[in-house]
Amino acid sequence: MEKLLIDSAAKHVNVNKNKKGFKISPLFDSLWEFMIFLLAAMGALLIIMIFLFILLKSWKIFSASGLQIITTTGFEEQIRQAYNAPADLPVWKFGMLSLIVGTITTTLGALIVAVPAGVGTAVIICEMSSGWLKRFLESSTRLLAAIPSVIYGLVGLMLVVPFISGNLLTVEMQMKYLEYFQLTGNSMLAGIIILSFMIVPMVIALSVDAINAVPKEYREASLALGITKWRTITLVVIPAAKSGILAGVILAAGRGIGEAIALSMVSGASAVLPSLSHGFVFLFTPVLPLASAIVNKSQAISIPSIEAALFACGVILLVMCSFLSICTKIIESVVRRRQGLE
């Protein structure tokens, strides 16, 4: 293989020398290098452009609302006012607290389900199974990861939501909470369930990578100390894989925060601020996460102030996700340094 390549390289060099008209000048070489750098730089500039563009587009919202945008509620009502406002008196003040809380609760709920389950599955894949079972688990995980979010939304809408409204909700509950919100099956719980299935393959994949990267010397050392295989996994292997697993969890959190379509289909699409004082009905509250709000209200995007409000949602989302992306690297290196691996 190597020899073959060297031969082919030699041939090309000769071709360049023989055909005089085809000889490539150093100018062309530096032009090519410049093009490559330009394209790479464009990719890197994209993120700045994205941030600047949507920030500019939503600047009026931020300057009019100030900090209130993240401390007050009433998004639904403000959208309605903005929609009906006369063109010379647009509404610029928005409060997105309920959207932010909706985003955080659905993502956090999904993480609470998906992280233990994902790490557990990864342990089974890496340490406890072999042969067909291992391959079967791996391909199931990959398929779960590849299913488009709109299909998760569809399944959630046709399977999870009817299940919740049919089995978990009673008429009395619906009557009792009618003054706050309508209890349909579309709820935070449905969102959490669907989101868990969407992020679990991510947690599995990154945990599998992290566990496979743990040197077998650690396992041998632990076994030789008379520690059982299972205790070796929980006491030595998983702690040694901690930084990689954490990176997977943060990545999964980013995915959850940014998920728009599936959540807009199942989570209720109504910007209610969920309250723990409602007891377990907290889980049945309809919520509107930031990303879903953009999809949900996009029909009214022709109104300038609503457009700006949706861009403001985008800015908040972008800040949250960029923060998480940067955190991943930092947390990973802090953990590894403390373990002495770096």
Binding site: I54, G258, A260, I294, G314, C321, S322, L324
Partner: peptide, 25 residues
């Protein structure tokens, strides 16, 4: 290193944000 961080952050940007960036642009 900025390039690498930028690409990392870009991979974490939700698709809906890219969508509204497209709308703006």
């Amino acid at each position: 290193s900025y390039l690498k961080i930028a690409i990392d952050v870009l991979s974490g940007v939700p698709t809906i944000v890219i969508a509204i960036f497209g709308v703006a642009l």
